[in-house]
Amino acid sequence: MPEALRSPETVGRVRDALVKYGFIAVTVVLFVFFAATEPAFAQSSTMFSMLKFASVTAILGLGVTFTMVVGGLDLSIGATAGLAVQLAAMTMVFYNLTGPTAVAAVLLGGVLVGLANAVLIVVFKIPDLLATLGMMFVIQGAKLIPVSGQSVSSGMVLRDGSVAPGRFTPDFLLIDRGFVGPVPLPVVIMLVLVVVSWFVLSRTSAGRILYAIGANPEAARLAGVRVGLYRGLAYVISGLFASVGGLILVSRIGQGDVNAGASSLLEAVAVALVGTSVLGLARPNAWGTLLGALLVAIVLTGLTMKGFQYYHQDTAKGFVLIVALLFSFTLSRRKVRYTPAT
């Protein structure tokens, strides 16, 4: 076919290839570049520490992915992760309870935040961005009250002058430090959640319904879909995932840092957005979110090894996001869509 040789078609094909594989190619190229120039980069210990580094962002990003699938966004995930940090610390340090109790308290807290968001959005019809923004401030403020704005750590002096009775239990600290075989536990948790999210979103009727709500909520409703129920479900899942991310975070830092989680919001939103561009899918999806988190981890680890200071990190993250968005929006000339996988 002679037309195939005409230049607009060739340009189009190159663009299609860029849209589909450009993002993965960039990730691979960066990986190879760092591996070639920094011998320490390609070691398995670095690999695992990178994956570990990516896990919190990836898990929070998965929560964001669910809310993006229904056409919304959860801005309260950073605060929810921070709440998880403090709940875990308070449960163990203030009340001297066990690690499993702390885990239960944290997950319950995440689900309750998600439910509150769901009620505000579905029942009271507050736009998702505003409802979750309000929720963000409420959580960030409210969690300071019982601790008088102090970070919670073992052996701290309480308001009545006594010393806090508990400490971070060893089993709780294992969440971040434990291994399954050679693989760090946070990495396992991340991979399990990615697979579960992928399966739910692309292989179950619930996932199909979530995408339908994102695509056209009115058409979904008139097809007999219970839009409110499933939209609410997305926010509950988001709250739950944010609290799981918070669990790993608090287990890593070993104290109830009041500022923990605050910076994870934008990172999580960014990786979920980056993820929409993977394979030119142009839709929020679980594997894309994981890849987005990995790309960020590769860039940051690589730059750190090259001697860049921590204050370069945000700029680097911003560039990663913009490059990925170039692939998904500019080159593909497509809007983000809500098409289910088939």
């Binding site: 179950t204 009727s205 199909r208 339908a212 056209n216 097809a223 007999g224 879909v225 098409t339």
Partner: peptide, 25 residues
């Protein structure tokens, strides 16, 4: 209409129960 959806996914949306087994498509 659901933008970007296929004939298959558009057709089955109201009756997902008929094309799933325990929730799996």
């Amino acid at each position: 209409m659901l933008p970007g959806w296929t004939i298959a996914t558009t057709s089955t949306l109201p009756f997902l129960r008929g094309v799933t087994r325990s929730g799996i498509l």
